[in-house]
Amino acid sequence: MTNDFLKAFGLTIRDQIIMKNSVEIKGLGTFKAEHTSQQQERKGDGKLVMLPPKDSIEFKADMEE
């Protein structure tokens, strides 16, 4: 296992997530892109804030273990 492999590992998953694809890695789990649309949020001090849309990466582990 080399650094190049680890870099490529991260890059590949990232690219697929950006393309809204979910990546399944056997023995580890599934990476999935989640989109959060813009939403209002009331903060603790009472301020109402409109949050911008956001993409996030979700990981669901394989339950084989």
Partner: peptide
């Protein structure tokens, strides 16, 4: 795109 404070609540 950054959070925008909206007029509402205490604000």
């Amino acid at each position: 795109m950054e959070p925008i404070e909206l007029p509402g609540g205490q604000e």
